[in-house]
Design a protein around this nucleic acid. Structure first.
Lengths: 256, 256
DNA sequence: ATTAATTAGCTAACGGTGTTCACTTTAATG
DNA sequence: CATTAAAGTGAACACCGTTAGCTAATTAAT
């Protein structure tokens, strides 16, 4: 009964995809209910209506499943962010970057446990990894979660590069660019090197990169503190964020 | 054989304290080697040379042990921070706050796994807690880890209050105080309320509080990113920090 | 259409975990 | 010295992730 004469997905493939989706859904619901450490393979098996051992036909291990989940979450986050950015016109770089921050924050807060898992994954193994890839391993197979994380950062980083390109094309001199303290040559070159991963496209001048990293640190701090409940404000979080974003823009040299 | 005629610690009490120390030491070494989730009660029992069940005479559960560990770590961190602050003269508030940031960062980086456990504890249960205390519970028994965390924050918060007091006493008008964007009354009052937990002592004006929270968010972001390996710099971290601190001081209205 | 190969699923087991309960040994107290 | 409270034991319970070997079903090839 080969229903695959047209090259379409075979029946088993469809069932397989469906089962994988069921497994992930069960895992996610456990994540939301009991947190990252409350995800149990056996509970998933019970949920899906299958033997624990059967799950190993779909994922090499519980860890592999969690990693896969993280990647899915990042895809979700990236899609949401990208959509929000594209709602603004292509040339409105400031608006687009603001949209990125805003949706990032919103997604993280709206999916706390997912976010918890996502940032706890590179973390969990961070002690034995160097910038995401285990020491002495090829750059190809750095862990996929870090890859997704970078992809997410690149959304904003690319916007920065485009922003700089626009600024450079339009204005002579320094049209309100960010002011930056003096730094050593070593720090300067290291920043340029490290950020080449996030900020792709045109080469961006150091002050821009520096201000970008500062803003990135602040956004990260905000989002992590909020999701973990240690932000110094709870009722008027939106306004607090907006004010913080305003201050970052001011650091960047803009008044809007 | 009552060696307790003088009211000193009985022999059993000494043994007990010693055993508790052994248990904690074993747990900590496991934490450092295998991370927070790699701490096993049975392994501790093996290590201490005792039956797993025996450990329940010392801690109600594994969770209780971990909480106790976190508290110890906070005490360690607090002691280190306090010592560094007191190395500067009592009136040098800026230096003392810088010392706080610096030691906080140094301790976290030097004790990554401990720090991981510490911040993952309020986190782990954050979804079901509101500002550290479970909904509908007295303020007395908020979880001890959060209490310690607040105690740590208060070190710096208290310094801010003292700083403001000094500034107010000395100068007329606004002697280089922080500039702050306009905020609504609701946000203003909420900030003042929430920060009353950190910032004890004299009532501090809103712009100071606002700048303080901004700096706190940035420091938190920096430390978390560094311990988790996502800081945009790895070789020249010290200089990067110093530059960031300089920028925060500038935000505060100081040039030093 | 029949056979061969691949895949999904099962059962059973291994070694590990946190936790509890009843029991014994040990140390401190009156 | 007898009594009481604490420390420690051993066995069990209910979980967990993971592996190996087997059976049934689907796909692919002849």
């Amino acid at each position: 009964m080969t229903s695959n004469t047209a090259g379409g997905p075979t029946r088993r493939e469809r069932m397989r995809a469906e089962t994988i989706a069921e497994i992930k859904a069960s895992a996610r619901s456990q994540l939301q209910e009991h947190g990252p450490s409350g995800i149990s393979l056996r509970a998933i098996a019970r949920d899906v209506g299958v033997t624990p051992a059967a799950l190993y036909r779909y994922f090499d291990s519980l860890d592999a499943l969690l990693i896969q989940l993280c990647c899915d979450f990042y895809d979700e986050l990236i899609a949401a962010t990208r959509e929000a950015m594209d709602a603004a016109p292509p040339g409105a770089h400031l608006d687009r970057m603001k949209a990125w921050v805003w949706v990032f924050r919103g997604w993280a807060v709206g999916h706390r446990r997912e976010f918890e898992l996502m940032i706890s994954y590179p973390e969990g193994n961070s002690a034995m990894t160097i910038d995401g890839r285990r020491a002495g391993q090829a750059a190809e197979d750095i862990d996929p979660v870090t890859q997704k994380s970078l992809e997410h950062s690149r959304l904003c980083g690319h916007e920065l590069a485009a922003f700089w390109k626009q600024t450079e094309r339009e204005g002579g001199g320094d049209p309100g660019g960010p002011a930056m303290p003096e730094v050593s040559d070593e720090l300067a070159s290291e920043l340029l090197d490290q950020c080449a991963v996030f900020i792709v496209g045109e080469p961006v001048p150091l002050p821009w990169i520096f201000s970008f990293t500062s803003a990135w640190v602040r956004v990260f701090g905000l989002v992590v503190m909020e999701t973990f409940g240690s932000l110094p404000v709870r009722e008027n979080v939106d306004e607090y964020y907006k004010t913080q974003i305003m201050m970052m823009l001011r650091d960047f040299g803009f008044d809007a």
